[in-house]
């Protein structure tokens, strides 16, 4: 344990390419970019499917397929095409993040009370207005829950990216294993765990804030247990 404290106190571990600040920024950049790209792909598709009700079967199938392919595998299968490095890790993380975002966007849209949509339609709203002013605000907490699940999975898996030559905080763990350097190994693990828990908390907060004012205070049922949360490592 002393070794770990000493590792954290060593100024050399706080500067340069392999310093904690730089590795953390690498980790966050990779994760944020992956979530952003995945959200730009998955949310519009989820909204469209939820609004029209078409393509639901395919959505669920994609979600289940995503659960069956482990994140570690995703990081490896693109290597022959994209080679080791940032692009490979990014592609794997985007694929990892799409299923939870897509599924939750769709589920959020499906969970919107049909009577409210009909009421909006009766008020003369166009389809786009319905989507923007009725469905999206009501579905938003569930959509953000999907982003939370995806973000936690991506932050966790970005660690594994070090196994296939990526930078980020996983570097400390992989190097710690390779060099049998226990302080570095444990310090890396602590950093990664803290980052994952912080990500989870941050998104949970946003999720709570996103509940439409009109819905606050009404007791919402918890998500059906059959749709359990995707795994920690993502859809490992």
């Amino acid at each position: 344990m002393n070794g770990v404290v000493a590792w954290f106190l060593d100024p050399a571990n706080w500067t340069g390419t392999s310093g904690i600040p730089n590795r953390t920024i690498e980790h966050l950049q990779l994760s944020a970019l992956a979530i952003l790209i995945a959200a730009l792909i998955a949310i519009p598709i989820g909204l469209l499917i939820g609004h029209t009700g078409r393509g639901a079967v395919a959505t669920v199938a994609i979600g289940n397929l995503g659960r069956a392919i482990p994140s570690y595998a995703l990081l490896v299968i693109f290597v022959p095409i994209l080679h080791i490095g940032f692009t490979n890790a990014l592609a794997a993380l985007v694929f990892l993040a799409i299923p939870p975002i897509l599924i939750n966007t769709y589920a959020g849209m499906r969970g919107v009370d049909r009577d409210m949509v009909e009421a909006g339609r009766g008020m003369g709203m166009t389809e786009l207005q319905l989507l923007r002013r009725v469905e999206l605000p009501l579905a938003l907490p569930v959509v953000i829950a999907g982003l939370r699940v995806a973000a936690v999975a991506v932050v966790a898996t970005a660690t594994l990216a070090a196994l296939v030559g990526g930078g980020a905080l996983g570097r400390y763990i992989v190097d710690g294993f390779a060099l049998r350097d226990t302080p570095q190994l444990v310090a890396g693990a602590i950093l990664v765990a803290l980052l994952a828990v912080a990500t989870e908390r941050a998104f949970s907060l946003v999720e709570r804030l996103a509940i439409s004012p009109g819905q606050r205070g009404t007791r919402r049922g918890s998500s059906p247990a059959g749709l359990a949360p995707p795994s920690p490592q993502g859809w490992v």
């Binding site: 932050v155 966790a156 660690t159 763990i173 444990v186 693990a189 990664v192 490592q233 490992v236």
Partner: peptide, 11 residues
């Protein structure tokens, strides 16, 4: 559940 697998094994 939130702790990444690689980190948990490392710990």
């Amino acid at each position: 559940y939130t702790i990444p697998s690689l980190a948990l094994f490392a710990l």
